[in-house]
Design a protein around this nucleic acid. Sequence first.
DNA 1: GGAAATTTGATGCAGTTGCATCGAAATAGA
DNA 2: TCTATTTCGATGCAACTGCATCAAATTTCC
Lengths: 144, 144
Amino acid sequence: MTREPDEATVAAWIGLSRAQRVAMDRIEARLKAKKLPPLSWYDALWELDKAGEAGLRPYELERAMLFEQYNLSRLAQRLQKAGLISRETCQADARGQTLKITDAGREMRRRMWETYSRAIGEAVGTKLSVTEARSLAGLLRKLE
Amino acid sequence: MTREPDEATVAAWIGLSRAQRVAMDRIEARLKAKKLPPLSWYDALWELDKAGEAGLRPYELERAMLFEQYNLSRLAQRLQKAGLISRETCQADARGQTLKITDAGREMRRRMWETYSRAIGEAVGTKLSVTEARSLAGLLRKLE
DNA sequence: GGAAATTTGATGCAGTTGCATCGAAATAGA
DNA sequence: TCTATTTCGATGCAACTGCATCAAATTTCC
């Protein structure tokens, strides 16, 4: 009736859930300890940095980040208030806007990456061989 | 200087983050669609169900669930208000309390599991073979 | 062209989380 | 024993999220 998934599937899900939380908590704690902004700020800045001079429309960033529309709207407000991005009204579409990273934003991203990358190394790198990490990444990609 | 983690490690972390979010969103959406409570309620009810007649102290549940103390305190209040758990003051330690699942709580857990398990099957089971799921679970365990 | 439907982004409100801190009980240490 | 420290759980406040909904601009389709 209930069509239970097999044990291995459940174990994978529980593992996914816990491992993500554990790693995430450790990484966020590192950022907080250095008084740096949360990961979501990094993700946004990184996407905008990659996007370069063209910037991104909010809805594009929203999809790249898997963020809800209203959450992205507010994240953008905060990033702008902090001077890390600019928000110009889009000339091709007067409803929308174009988000661009500022110099301060690029600098912040760089600064965050120092701590962030180190934290990834500790939370993930030290626990897995390179082969294991590759294999894990491959399996996780299948879940999307 | 910055001691970058290798690419594979970063890919594993990004994958972990995204895969968890994608799967979680799908699963939570299923619960919401059936007007069932969020996953955190399930986790708490499951731990308390396993604990049986003895129940659990809040700090024990807190550790099992990887929850912050204040979040558990409030989750327990909500679960109690919903009639799914009882909170008696602990007689061995007058500071603390003992949390126990109620019949309604057991029933709710069972009801949630019907939807939850199906959702796990879809979000994870259909994407991986049993061998892959086992392998994924094994790799994830190393991260804790 | 013009009405209807869709897309884009913002926001009021309620619920949740994070932070700091509190009070009370238990334990440790002199 | 009697004070100092630690543990246990709650809570005020600010920040953040989720939901519903809005207004404005664009696209669709006749």
